[in-house]
Amino acid sequence: MPFWSPLALLAVALGLVITHFAVPTTRAWMWKASAVVGLGALALLLYLGLIWAPPEAFMSDVGRILYVHVPFVWMCMIAFTLNVGCAIAYLMKKSWRTDALAESTAEIGVMFGAGGVLMGSIWARPTWGVWWDWDPRLISTAVMLLSYVGYLAFRSFTEDPERRATWSAAASILGYVSLPIVWFSVRWWNSLHQVQSTSQSLDSQMRIVMWWGTVTMLFFLFAFVVKRYEIARSRQSSALEAPPEAPRQEVAA
């Protein structure tokens, strides 16, 4: 993979979300289209990943886990990056919308991350020979997931919506510190986990399937974010009797 490919993915995800919010006419249909296309792409991914792609030279068919493991972990990282973006935006300018979006992306990121780690563990058993190991990549990923599970629990334990929004934004920023550690851990330390693949180290057919899987999951990510955002918004408006557009402005210092 070129080094900018995760950034390109992030840009696409961001573009979809921004379009959804900035262009009102897209709100009704875009997530539906995304979900439908995602379902079709998922069916094709199953075909491509399980049948069309060649087995790997040494892992043989076990290597097919690549096509779902990597996309899940990438979606997790994209969701957390969107989350921390919302947190920073909320601290700079208070808005219920960014708070709802932060809630939505954190939950979806935890879902994708937990799935990705589970798949990685299943993959590790036949290839490395262990389910789990004390390894920089694995430990830092677990830490990142745990800090966002803590974030979600904190949100559900805090009743005051305004405090919840501000405090969880702070928690999100502190928790995000672990993400660059996760990404670079395989480069900084010698790890059992292999470093990120490059376009040279990945067979062209396998590369196509991996990208197909990534795009598929991106469609699901977008549809999930939109639906989860709507849930968060409706909870906000039921928590506040008359939902104001923005929280109370801070008292002048």
């Binding site: 430990i139 830490v143 974030y151 334990f157 928790g175």
Partner: peptide, 21 residues
């Protein structure tokens, strides 16, 4: 944060431990 949250005794370790690892 957690000094004002509900279940504050649970919240502090829940938030703090992962970040501190």
């Amino acid at each position: 944060m957690s000094s004002n949250a509900r279940a504050r005794d649970v919240m502090l370790p829940l938030l703090l431990f992962p970040v501190l690892v």
